[in-house]
């Protein structure tokens, strides 16, 4: 005790140091499970962050609108063209939908047990982004009261963003696909028979490999989720940017450019299984 009284500063420093290390270790073991206090605190913070983030969005959109009106006009033209294309697509899809319904009826009459799961959708705003510059974790303004659960899938307008890491009453923390060590299985959109597995590469992008080393996959191929695991089928993930054959493991390894630009996400859709 005498030593502590003589070296108060040193003792405090050592105490803080050790407790921080313990906090890191404990939270590493119980990853994704916040305490009651943590959830309350984060709920309170999100209350303040939401209006601030709205204001920031408004200001930055206003400014960029003023300075980039030419590109906005150009974008407008492009979007109009896209709308007409999509309208045609809708007509085609309606036809195949009818076909699908017929096939479903047929499969139920044959007592086929399919993975026919239905999903609910919720749209939410991003209210805060991680400031550490490395990761792409962010908070959205929907939580358990809207039906969001842990491991719900989050998609953007372009494609797959990630999954819900933690959830509170009216907020949820999202971890992006590129920050994850865990694997996602994909299929190639050109030929849905070609399957593979991808994960984040730790450099802000994705890497993966094909299950069949002789699969014909090339640069520019679009990859979709395959429906194996927690991710529902058919969500765009990214485009193949290079293909190499690893001579040691005899696997075709891919580097993948994600379709979503993770640094500028404002609205997301959460997919909740029924």
């Amino acid at each position: 005790m005498k030593w502590f009284r003589e070296h108060t500063r040193l003792a405090t420093v050592i105490g803080v140091f050790l407790s921080l290390i313990i906090i890191i270790a404990v939270s590493f073991v119980n990853k994704g499970n916040n305490s009651w206090l943590g959830r309350k605190l984060e709920g309170g913070i999100t209350q303040v962050q939401e209006p601030l983030s709205d204001a920031g969005n408004g200001v930055s959109n206003g400014f960029s609108g003023i300075f980039r009106f030419r590109s906005v006009l150009k974008e407008n033209e492009k979007l109009k063209a896209e709308i007409s294309k999509l309208n045609q697509q809708i007509i085609k899809n309606r036809l195949s939908e009818l076909e699908l319904q017929e096939l479903r009826e047929l499969s139920s009459s044959l007592n086929y047990v399919g993975g026919d799961r239905s999903y609910n959708h919720i749209t939410a705003d991003v209210i805060a982004l991680d400031g550490s510059n490395w990761f792409n974790l962010f908070t959205i303004n929907a939580g358990t009261k809207d039906g969001v659960k842990k491991d719900s899938i989050v998609v953007g307008g372009d494609g797959l963003i990630g999954r819900v890491l933690e959830v509170g009453n009216d907020w949820a923390k999202i971890i992006s696909l590129i920050d994850e060590n865990s694997n996602v299985s994909f299929q190639v959109s050109r030929n849905l028979q070609l399957l593979g597995i991808l994960s984040g590469d730790g450099k802000g992008s994705l890497k993966g490999y094909m299950l069949d080393p002789e699969a014909s996959v090339g640069e520019g191929d679009m990859l979709l989720t395959s429906g194996i695991g927690i991710y529902p089928q058919g969500i765009p993930i990214g485009k193949v940017s290079s293909v190499t054959l690893d001579t040691d493991s005899l696997l075709k390894t891919l580097t993948i450019e994600p379709v979503v630009y993770f640094k500028n996400i404002q609205k997301v859709t959460v997919i909740i299984p029924d």
Partner: peptide
């Protein structure tokens, strides 16, 4: 607080 809101591992 920063880690609580955005980090995977606290601290």
């Amino acid at each position: 607080i920063q880690d609580l809101c955005f980090g995977e591992i606290l601290g």
